[in-house]
Amino acid sequence: MAHNRVVQWSTMSRIWWLYDAKYQCPFRSARIIAGYLQGQHKPIYHALSDVGDHVVVINSRHIAMREELWRTFTFSYHTGYAKGFSRTPAWRLHSMEPTMMIEKAVYSNMPGFLLRRKYMRRLHIYPDEEVPPEIIGNVCDQIQQIQKVPKRLDEYTAEEIQAFPKLFDWSEEYVIENISADKPKDTVKAAKK
């Protein structure tokens, strides 16, 4: 039981990473996740040797896309038969299958050779925070998110909103529907409606 043997084992073993996709761009996240799946962060990396890690992606339902991309970004598919072409906007695909966007993005970010399917089998995507215990028990570390998760207005307390610096005060006659000092939460809900 030489020490070298366990060091070797440690070098070649696969690490399990966790990635929280909440409010993250799926395309830019996919570049990073694909790197971890291929083992590009390891000193022993080689394009032809399978030294990649596992990645568990959670909250894939809550990914974020900039501008009008939910509407304008489309996924196209052809069945191979005549008139078999179809084009689905991102919002529709995401509403049908909330893990598909990340999977497709990661798949297209990896080099197209035989190891790609193997790498993809080490990607575990879950739409919410519920992950089976046999999967989450393997995880040991977390991949840093690429975007800062924004804080929504209803997550601020009334004091924080009050303390926010203002350039000017509204005149008393000015009617503001949404913001009220008495019931900030109710007003925000009203704004949503």
């Binding site: 020490h3 366990v6 060091v7 084992w9 440690s10 073993s13 696969r14 690490i15 399990w16 596992h54 046999e134 028990g137 393997n138 995880v139 040991c140 570390d141």
Partner: peptide, 25 residues
């Protein structure tokens, strides 16, 4: 990591007086 997979890996450290004196996978 990978505790329920066949490639499980544990890193154990040995402490004496709250000081790490040896570690190994």
């Amino acid at each position: 990591t990978g505790c329920s997979s066949i490639m499980s890996l544990y890193h154990v450290g040995i402490y004496s007086d709250k000081e790490l004196i040896g570690r190994s996978p």
